[in-house]
């Protein structure tokens, strides 16, 4: 296995990528007659896996979605493409790639699999409830799980774009990292190690400040594990479009490469609350959310203290 720190040469691509833009560089290799399968948000902001042959469709797959995606009939569809001799890129979580390999039973020369380093997959149901709550019934026109335009790569702020309004929030980030909303299997995930089922494994390069400080500008760097010979072949081809440095796995050991997250003690309570309380309660208790009136009150108190202090 070879380990790399990667950023795309095109800063515009990097700015709109979740991390350093490695998915764009590799999937570009398939846009000339090949097929790309990956996760997009549908018109109702559900994460689903779809097939595309063009750049517009591929661009929707960029950036990880922090929800479990629905694969639908993708496995069968990809197999048909493979049998037809098309060059196929399949990207997904490790379990989606592992499941697909089990389904195929054999390797195809014309198939490349990319898996992402995943903390665990959050519930699509909680996601929908969150979106309804945060948008307050306004029409949502876009969702950015990590807004790098207005914030840093490490800030992890999500932005919900509504008509005439942009809502920045970290409630989903907090819910995600509380681990209460992950699928039960994720706490026992067999792919939480440096052995991955993808030919290439990609992630945010957490720890870049140590592994390769010269790339660290808080704009996003990709961690790339090249696991197979086939993966290496495609990585070589993608090198034209990227700046890359070989790094050490020892300096790159983010938690999901070591072990699965633990089941939180409060997980049962979370789901009880989710069933019985409104989402404001959930956001306050588990999503580190402070309602506007409380924030205003806090500011007012602060101001009064300041004024009285001056007097």
């Amino acid at each position: 296995m070879n380990v790399y720190a990667v950023k795309h040469k095109d800063e515009r691509i990097r700015a709109t990528s979740r991390s350093g833009g490695i998915f764009t560089a590799i999937s570009d290799l398939f846009l000339d007659g090949g097929v790309v399968y990956g996760c997009v948000l549908d018109e109702n902001y559900n994460a689903i896996h779809v097939r595309t042959e063009n750049k517009t469709g591929r661009d929707l797959m960029r950036g990880s979605k922090y929800i479990q995606s629905r694969l639908g009939d993708c496995y069968k569809q990809i197999k048909n493409d493979l049998e037809d001799g098309r060059h196929v890129l399949f990207s997904g979580t490790s379990c989606q790639v592992a499941g697909f390999r089990c389904f195929l039973k054999k390797d195809y020369n014309n198939l490349l699999c990319i898996d992402i380093v995943c903390h665990g997959v959050p519930s699509p149901k909680v996601w929908k409830t969150y979106l309804d709550w945060i948008s307050k019934g306004k029409t949502i026109i876009n969702v950015d799980f990590r807004n790098k335009k207005d914030f840093g790569w490490r800030d992890h702020v999500e932005t919900i774009f509504c008509k005439n309004k942009k809502i920045n929030s970290q409630v989903w980030t907090y819910l995600f990292y509380s681990h209460n909303i992950l699928r039960p299997v994720c706490y026992e995930c067999p792919y939480k190690s440096i052995d991955h089922p993808g030919d290439i494994t990609i992630a945010d390069y957490w720890g870049i400040e140590k592994a390769c400080p010269r790339l660290d500008d808080n704009k996003g760097v990709s961690l790339v594990l090249v696991n197979t010979e086939k993966g290496s072949l495609y990585f070589e081809k993608a090198k034209n479009d990227i700046v890359w440095y070989k790094t050490r796995i020892e300096d790159s050991m983010q938690h999901p490469l070591i072990e699965p997250e633990k089941v939180p003690d409060e997980r049962n309570q979370f789901w009880k609350d989710f069933e019985n309380k409104d989402f404001s309660y959930i956001a306050r208790k588990y999503g580190n959310y402070t309602p506007l009136w409380r924030r205003t009150l806090r500011k007012a108190k602060h101001l009064i203290k300041k004024v009285l202090g001056k007097d």
Binding site: Q68, G72, Q96, G99, P184, V185
Partner: peptide
């Protein structure tokens, strides 16, 4: 146990009788 299923759809896709739904 729910901890034993990742929801990958491999079983759904391989079933020769479309007997599995997600």
């Amino acid at each position: 146990r729910k901890e034993d299923c990742c929801g990958c759809t491999a079983c759904y896709a391989i079933c020769p009788r479309q007997a599995i739904s997600m």
